[in-house]
Write a protein that binds this DNA or RNA. Structure first.
Lengths: 221, 221
DNA sequence: CGTCGCGTTGACAAGGTTCAAATTTGGTGG
DNA sequence: CCACCAAATTTGAACCTTGTCAACGCGACG
């Protein structure tokens, strides 16, 4: 069990929750070290979270340890809003991550009183739905190379096409996201590097530069 | 383009849309033959549909023809409610299917005026989200046999555990739902039959009886 | 009675996994 | 600043599950 520290400070990311909640909602900030759990599958969904900085992975586990990562959440994303009383998956910080926390009941209360909120809230949920639908297509019908190309393009887009892309997650995380093994991910990345679609920066394997976004998009199909 | 016939008759399935929309909403009924399209990916999302009888598959296609079925929709299910202006996937009738049609704008109008509607509408969307999340786990991390076992259990549950389960979809449909080939599905079903988990009824391959639901659930993991 | 769609089964190929080892990287303490 | 160690990543080789291609059976329907 974590102790949540309430801070009155406003954060720099003026995201959806803040917009929805306005000033009236109790809203605190919290920091997680890399590898620590934000919430667990089956736990009571008391809080709703919005990423300020860092990366969160949400995933489900099978009994024998197989893990499927549903999504990586970057700054601005909201997680933890459930329809039922409990979380449907586990979320933990990939690297050091700051989040903004709102009580679920506070959020729903505000929405109930503001008609305008309905549309936005629905939008937050359907965004997750859309992502899941695209991921189903990727997992069901794409090859390893297509999946890795799609992953790079997704991260590139969500980081707003930076010159240098920084991957905060390990090869295993990527593999569990793409329904592959870490070795297959590594091989696919090597192929993409050798074929000139991208290159690693210096000696690191977590910073890279996309050299041919159009080519990657064609690979993705 | 289809001509939609407005009928004032109430249908037997008293589903969510009817409950949400009440009596004030223009609500018509329509019948599709098996194999015909209900709506297409990218089309304007003018109507929201609820299945009265039959089965609808929703899917996406890749350029080279690979198909991933997102979901099979049975009586009571709602489809076609999008956040944006267009449908994110194609939907077509698997067998002869009756649907109840409501104008999207009528539905949203009613919801906007009734606070109680928000919760229900959110529920309709999060149900789809939950299904997609479970499907991501299946596609990303389960073996062929586990997938087919999970499929049988899903259909069994959604048909409310009938003695005789009727599959309205072909092996190819099942395969495109489970991210497999039709041959692999056929082989998996043969294994499940040979091992006594289920049997086909008579000489048919679309009617079957589950003999060991607990065993199937263990297979599914 | 022939044809067509659907399903099953077999043989083989291939993409991805598994197991193993080499290499690199990043962190820690001297 | 450097040596050392643990963790992460890459690479290789054998293996295995699933896909591909093909043949065959069965029932529906003209």
């Amino acid at each position: 069990m974590l102790i949540r520290i309430n801070t009155a400070s406003r954060h720099s990311v003026d995201g959806h929750l803040a917009a929805l909640a306005g000033e009236r909602v109790f809203c605190s900030e919290f920091k997680y070290r890399g590898g620590t759990e934000v919430f667990g599958e089956g736990e009571e969904a008391e809080y709703v979270y919005q990423i300020i900085s860092g990366t969160v992975r949400t995933y489900k586990l099978l009994e024998d340890g197989r893990r499927q990562i549903n999504s990586f959440h970057l700054p601005g994303d909201m997680i933890g809003l459930e329809n039922g009383a409990t979380h449907r998956f586990t979320a933990d910080a990939v690297v050091e991550t700051k989040v903004s926390i709102t009580r679920r009941c506070s959020l729903l209360e505000v929405i109930a009183h503001r008609k305008a909120g309905t549309r936005n809230l629905l939008g937050l949920v359907t965004r997750n739905l859309q992502h899941a639908e695209n991921h189903v297509l990727l997992l069901g019908r794409k090859t390893a190379l297509e999946r890795v190309a799609a992953f790079l393009l997704e991260m590139d887009e969500r980081q707003e096409h930076p010159n240098v892309m920084i991957l905060s997650m390990s090869r295993r995380d990527i593999a569990d996201y793409l329904g592959l093994t870490l070795e297959t991910v590594s091989r696919a990345l090597s192929i993409l590097r050798d074929e000139g679609f991208m290159k690693f920066l210096g000696t690191t394997q977590r910073q890279l530069v996309l050299l041919d976004r159009i080519g990657l998009a064609q690979l993705d199909t």
